[in-house]
């Protein structure tokens, strides 16, 4: 029985708050056995790709809304500054003071990847003959030095621009899960663009002035999402470290 058009009945997140009502952190719940996989209309039975080895996580309360992440991201990846193409988006309500940085979670069940009709969405496996597009692009863009070894094998879900036909199904697929699609569409080049983890050193993390964006690493991270588009899992060691860091710093 096809469940294509049903809204996935995902477990609701229980939220717990940091000290002094600080950062909102998702609870530890995974999507094992959830019906999300069937939700996406993909002709091939989607085998989950290898789990990502890193993920950008954010702290909504600390974010100051400067959008340095979007600027750094696009200058690094596109060579020009265009926040609309930022692989991380800060959703801002300027008059309410709600600033939500929205990074890509490199989902364990990536909606974007399952939606892609051409297989242009791939994992950055770092293998020979695998997705070398990232490296090619970085090398040509950054002109000169060969990309460091960290630029391979993060298992990030990335777009192979040569195979992308600009149909934007990945954008729509992501938007079904998250409020705002993490996959962006470059209308000038007619290709989808998305977070590559900058080859292992995310620039958004590097340039966040207040530490609202962090990079969590692990050998095999399970990242899911709930119906509301929130990340519901983050690596426990990162969470513990974060809690330590925040204690006493937050005003």
């Amino acid at each position: 029985m096809s469940k294509h058009n049903e809204t996935p009945n995902l477990p609701k997140t229980s939220r717990r708050k940091f000290i002094a009502g600080a950062a909102i952190v998702g609870s530890l719940a995974t999507l094992e056995g959830a019906s999300a996989i069937n939700y996406f209309n993909h002709k091939n039975e989607p085998n989950p790709p290898p789990k990502t080895k890193g993920v950008v996580i954010m702290d909504q309360v600390v974010c100051g809304g400067c959008r340095s992440c979007q600027a750094a991201c696009t200058v690094f990846n596109d060579g020009h500054c265009q926040p609309d193409l930022g692989r991380i988006q800060v959703i801002k309500d300027y008059f309410e003071g709600d600033f939500l940085p929205q990074p890509c979670s490199h989902c364990t069940w990536p909606a974007c990847m399952y939606s892609c009709p051409t297989g242009a969405l791939q994992t950055d496996s770092g293998e020979e003959g695998g997705i070398s597009e990232l490296e090619v692009r970085l090398t040509s863009l950054l002109s000169g030095k060969p990309t460091p070894s960290t630029s391979k094998g993060t298992n990030a879900r990335i777009v192979n621009e040569r195979e992308c036909i600009g149909c934007q199904q990945c954008v729509e697929g992501c938007a079904k899960i998250f409020n705002l699609s993490r996959v962006r569409f470059n209308s000038k080049k007619n290709v989808a663009v998305k977070c590559t983890l900058c080859g292992g050193s995310p620039q958004c993390v590097r340039f966040c002035p207040v530490g609202a964006i962090l990079f969590a690493r692990g050998d095999s991270l399970t990242i899911g999402y709930d119906g509301g588009g929130n990340i519901i899992w983050r690596p426990p060691e990162a969470e513990a470290k974060r809690e330590d860091e925040l204690r006493g710093i937050l005003w």
Binding site: V62, C63, G64, C66, S68, A71, F95, G97, P209, V210
Partner: peptide, 25 residues
Amino acid sequence: KRLDACFGCQVACRAFITIPGQTKG
């Protein structure tokens, strides 16, 4: 409520203040 920054800031020097019944900002 939080820090607030201009575009491309590397400090975020301002405070966003919400007082019930008054203009936020």
